[in-house]
Design a protein around this nucleic acid. Sequence first.
RNA 1: GGCGGUAUCGUCUAGGGGUGAGGACGCGGCCCUCUCAAGGCCGAAACACGGGUUCGAUUCCCGUUACCGCUACCA
Length: 435
Amino acid sequence: MADQIRVRFAPSPTGYLHVGGARTALFNWLFARKMGGKFLLRIEDTDRERSSPEHTQVILDGMAWLGLDHDEDIVFQGAGLERHQAIADQLIESGHAYLDDGATRFRIPDESISWDDAVLGNVTFDGAGIDDLVILRSDRTPTYNFSVVCDDIEMKLTHVLRGNDHTSNTPKQIAIYNALGATIPTFGHVPMIHGIDGKKMSKRHGATAVGDYRNEGILPAAMRNFLSLLGWGTGDDRELFFKAEELIEAFSIKGIQKKAAVFDPAKLEWMNGQYISHMKPEDLYPLVSQGLSAEGLTPEAKGKERLMSAISAVAERARSVHVIPERVALRLNPQTISLDEKATGFRNKNVEAFNQGLSLSLECLDETDEPWTPDVIGDQLKAAALTAELGVGKLMQPIRIALTGMTVSESVTDLLPLIGKEESLKRLREALNWD
RNA sequence: GGCGGUAUCGUCUAGGGGUGAGGACGCGGCCCUCUCAAGGCCGAAACACGGGUUCGAUUCCCGUUACCGCUACCA
């Protein structure tokens, strides 16, 4: 039986989780979960200037938000200092490294170094063209390429899936593995993520941190799904994986692309909308409960059923989770309606017709004793429109605007019962008095 | 500069020696319809360039170009 697969994600705690790093973490996680292996986390905190527990926490929060749970204890690279130093000294003794101006330099052999990359295929470098690298600075702190190898060995990794920017580091690291007599893991270099201009993702492109998208109302599952499709494909046309298990099941290193992928926010938004509208309101609720509570919108205050139907009415048209609380409040809390730009435009086009529509609607809605259900309301409004020889839209759109201040909403016949008779009629009357 | 990598619609991708080069986002149109969203249908939109190999290359090989990365006592 083959050894259990062990992979890792090894971020530097720089204060935010970059989407590129998150995507690399995601691939490792998917691979580990798919293969029944272990997904480990190592914090590369050797740069003491930039590292802090707060920065580390940001990374951890980002991972947790995306649902990328890790196995075993988190490894802090800084804790391995003495071990790294000892290994470097050992390399001097074995003749693989030498002292140079106080630093310890590793000797790259003059031979061809190649490996079978899990995504790139066979890659070959000529060791003669690679400079000997410093592994221990003159202050005896280890450098990146060296500590990575020491820790990857220590953590018994079987696969190293990392960003494509490390491809050129790999021959150096392989030479160190060889000098140490260690087993070389399978390397896989996953493509970079670029901004819309084809350049490396940076602040110029706007949001680059996972936390930014969280703040913009992106759902973690949507983010995960979107990120997975950057540089990876199933081979068929499948794009939506609403459950993490489906994504894990579909994942394969074989489907990883070699070229860099451009991050397209428009597609992320579309995907987020897909997630929001496909989710049951009960599942959506925990993700927006904080915002809802701030508006006094709790199941206790509004009734669970009513709250859920408001959420689901609103979610159907939302591409960000952000708009949900305010729009639910618009329906379930008493409001004084103010018009948005489009609604103002619609009314101004013909104020008289607008008011006529409202009066007619008010008349038939106010006088009825029948229950306020979508069917009954629909029938009554249609009948009223027919009598007045108007299209139903001439009644519906003014009602919609009177109730919400917007030109867009769920069907008016659903909207009225949701808001409730008393509040609805109040808003309709107020709308007649708009100037 | 040297070394390494990459190259299919604007973007994410499928495919692969003979295809009408498929899907998705976005864009345009139509249907549905009280608006929007969702959904359905339709449309515009791609094999970087030049040489080979071959009966036939977008696919294989070589070169060019472009882009990315490494070339630090950064990570």
